[in-house]
């Protein structure tokens, strides 16, 4: 299966996810720690791009708490990666509903001002800000597909499994997201 092969690619280390999950089900928190360290970076990146830096730690913690609680109901441990992404997107969607997109955008921009203080690379900072704003102005469904596909290299079939939508819908959302981004950049004076 594509998804399982991708997950295997993503986590070639030993022990594999299935073995770790079995140990977690026995209450082994050290095995869960290994899973956390294996995946937290990707989860964190996805959540950051979807939700911004506000509450990022809380969101990551929420994802892995849901993972721990949901492990006894995980029927296909070999698809752990797909399942984990699905949880991360659900957490991001919940956060979006709770916090409100507009307020988050403002906080994101304010937080970014603290992150990029190098005066020698203002042009790069400008483009970073542009990319962030461009991605954030996309509808959540398009943003999720664009981030997973274009920034995190997930194949379309896996994205379809994560979001539980047909591959054709993934393609159409990706197409619309890119078109909207191109238009946004053009409106900002950046022509690719």
């Amino acid at each position: 299966m594509v998804a399982s092969s991708r997950v295997a690619e993503a986590s070639p280390t030993f022990p594999d996810d299935t073995a770790l999950i079995q140990r977690c089900l026995g209450g082994d928190t050290q095995s869960f720690q290994v899973l956390y360290r294996r995946y937290q970076s990707r989860v964190r990146g996805t959540l950051y791009r979807l939700c911004g830096p506000t509450h990022l730690d809380d969101l990551v913690q929420d994802v892995f708490l849901r993972v721990w609680r949901g492990l006894p109901r995980l029927r296909q441990p070999q698809l752990f990666g797909v399942w984990l992404y699905r949880i991360a997107l659900n957490v991001a969607a919940d956060h979006r509903h709770q916090a409100g997109l507009q307020r988050d955008q403002q906080r994101t921009l304010a937080a970014q001002g603290h992150h990029h203080t190098d005066p020698l690379d203002l042009n790069h900072c400008h483009y970073q800000d542009l990319v962030e704003r461009g991605i954030r102005q996309l509808p959540f469904e398009q943003r999720a597909v664009l981030i997973l596909h274009d920034l995190e290299d997930r194949p379309q079939k896996e994205i379809a499994e994560i979001l539980k939508i047909p591959v054709g819908t993934v393609k159409s959302r990706l197409f619309r997201a890119r078109a909207a981004l191109r238009q946004f950049f053009a409106d900002e004076g950046v022509h690719l």
Binding site: Y48, L56, H115, H116, Q128, V131, H149, D150, D153, F185
Partner: peptide
């Protein structure tokens, strides 16, 4: 197997080049 290769390389390259670094936990 679906291809992971981007079919809008200019846009994707621009996005990757200028995406913000993820804050440390």
């Amino acid at each position: 197997m679906t291809t992971p290769l981007p079919d809008d390389p200019q846009l994707v390259s621009f996005l990757r080049q200028h995406q913000s670094p993820v804050p440390a936990p």
